[in-house]
Design a protein around this nucleic acid. Structure first.
Lengths: 215, 215, 215, 215
DNA sequence: AATGAATGAGCCTTCATTCAT
DNA sequence: CATGAATGAAGGCTCATTCAT
């Protein structure tokens, strides 16, 4: 293996190249996100992503080892944005219940505005187990999803719930939001002539009353 | 309208032919259901369905106009089975709350056991809006889904909820179940180290106490 | 599985269809053979074969399950032609030594004229063990190759060799012919300024003298 | 001819650079040889060679003009090793027949142990005539191959054969060994239930008896 | 000398659908 | 009604090679 000492200039140039590469990777993900938003997960081909990014298909393989890796990176990015939204939603010093409402709304709104990213998150639901994500990446993604919901958990604890209760409540609220989002996006909620937002509000009210309520 | 006179034999033969056709249609759907259960929605090709049904691919087009129509028919069948499950779950004369619990469990269990059919139901979520189902069929399917949940609604009314409240409660419960099912089947619920069934039970308890509770 | 009684006409038509299919399969193999002869094994793509046969690439999959299956079929055909050549070369009533010379020449000439078919036969030499042929097919092909050499074996026995000796002699002669063919086709024999045919003749003379001779 | 004067240091540096370059070339060839041995000729990509050598693909083009040139260089190296083996096999003062046996075995064993290098040697057989080697290189390679067999030729002359006979015998033995090697490596020899080594021994015995024998 | 992208052509294969028979 | 071909488009991916830096 050739191992040569390198000058300062070379090192700087290399760092620059890596930064450029990072940027271009981002541009490809941007193109992929747009394609997914327009055409759906199943409707988006590698060629289409390449086309939108201004590349030939083969070129993407300099940045991603496979289509699945693009999925993974995209989901990772999406979760980062989700976390940013959630964090930005509420000040830490706000009262617990206010933080509960704020975080939940931020979470819900994020996926209401970006339905395809919910899709991406549950894309594994389609096939059998093997989902193309490495276990390590899968763990990281799960952790970031958990992170996005943790403010809810903390707010509940701050409001007086035991840690165990807080986890249960959070999971249940998560399920409720996921269910409402899917009912909303698939239009199935129209069957019942209801509004997802209104039902979420009711759910949160009930939760809040249970938390602080009893005394 | 010209009405060609036809002999009795011809008519009977025609009726018989139609019945045979109905049966074969059913066999194809049966094959499709098995294929979906084994290979998933995305992993099942028309050829595979044909193969399992003992036909060549082209032959299916005598019974269904397109792959999407098979999806629609399959979803229809699935909803019939769901309704049968739900109806069988509880006697009409049982106390309201018992009926609530029973129906909800029947609904939830159906999709826990047959995850692909939930998949089928939300398959439209994947692609773009135009989902290949005719509006008429879509309406019928939505109605059958609603039917499956109506026993819950009725039980709530019988327990004292106003009709409007009952619809809201039902929709919310529906969302909760959908969310839990997806969290369960995608394995995402493991992030929180929770059991979907247990959370559903808690949800139902809360709902029950709200209904009968106040007195 | 639909199982209907069928009329005579239907059966005849079906038989006709199968015959047509057989013919077209042959035309594809013909195209493949030509492509191989012109472009070599590695240089021939499925697309190229399809193009020459007047098909789209996908159409070939009605006749062959994979590219490797085409290889197998082609090799099978080639061995049939080889056997035909060998059989045609010598009358059964000819004296043993004449049969030895005749069969060996026929074998050698076949591969001198069709170098690519030798290539095909040894194509498996390239990669690792897994050669894409099913063991059953591989056995059949090996048997046909053996068949093509059996007249040599029989002639040797008729000339007085023991069965075991005859097999050894045949195998050695086979190796000699293969070696000469490769040296010839790769031009490596020019290094020594020799003629493959002449060397083969010498080899056969030595063999013949050993067989009948000394005694 | 303009001859730019250059300092001693420059010249030494240049000589040093060339030596370094030679070494790196060797490392690349080493990597290529390993890759071929593991993955076969067809299974080895330029990228793979680069990866194993610790380079990026483009870097190889500083040392070799094309993939074919790597093939050529590798074959050259392989032939050097072959010659070394053959030379090391027998002392010059040994009796002629001993030298015959020893050299032949060394040759045979070399290719029995390194089947891919035989592959490499006959790789040109695959494609069309134009084989990517320059005529000059091709000549050099042929000469080295001839060199590896020359001890056999000399031994035969020493044993009493005329030069012309010796060349014929050598060529025939070469063909026999090539044939046996191919039959061995492709497994085709199993058809006849024979051992390549044993057949080679018999061939050598026959040759030896013919040489020294009669008289 | 070496990198890291990028190209452009190509690979084998799969698919829903159509249609003459 | 059913077959068996055939289409045409697309799928993900690999490759040797080039080239600005």
């Amino acid at each position: 293996m050739p191992q040569r000492s390198e000058g300062v200039g070379q090192a700087r140039r290399r760092r620059g190249a890596r930064a450029v590469s990072e940027v271009r990777r981002g541009l490809i993900l941007e193109a992929a996100r747009e394609a997914f938003a327009e055409l759906g997960l199943a409707g988006t081909s590698l060629r289409e992503i390449a086309r939108r990014a201004g590349y030939t298909p083969g070129a993407l393989y300099s940045y991603f080892a496979s289509k699945e890796e693009i999925y993974g990176a995209l989901l990772g990015e999406s979760l980062e944005r989700l976390n940013a939204c959630v964090v930005a939603a509420v000040a830490n010093e706000a009262p617990p219940l206010e933080r509960l409402y704020g975080t939940a709304r931020a979470f819900y709104d994020f996926y209401r505005e970006h339905p395809r990213e919910l899709d991406l998150g549950f894309y594994l639901f389609n096939g059998v187990r093997p989902m193309g994500l490495t276990p390590a990446l899968n763990d990281r993604l799960n952790r970031r999803l958990h992170d996005a919901l943790r403010p809810i958990e903390h707010a509940l604890v701050a409001a007086g719930r035991s840690p165990a209760e807080a986890v249960r409540d959070t999971t249940s609220l998560f399920a409720q939001m996921v269910g409402l989002l899917i009912l909303h996006h698939t239009g199935r909620i129209r069957i019942f002539d209801q509004q997802a937002e209104s039902l979420l509000a009711t759910y949160l009210d009930t939760l809040a009353s249970r938390v602080s309520g009893v005394r």
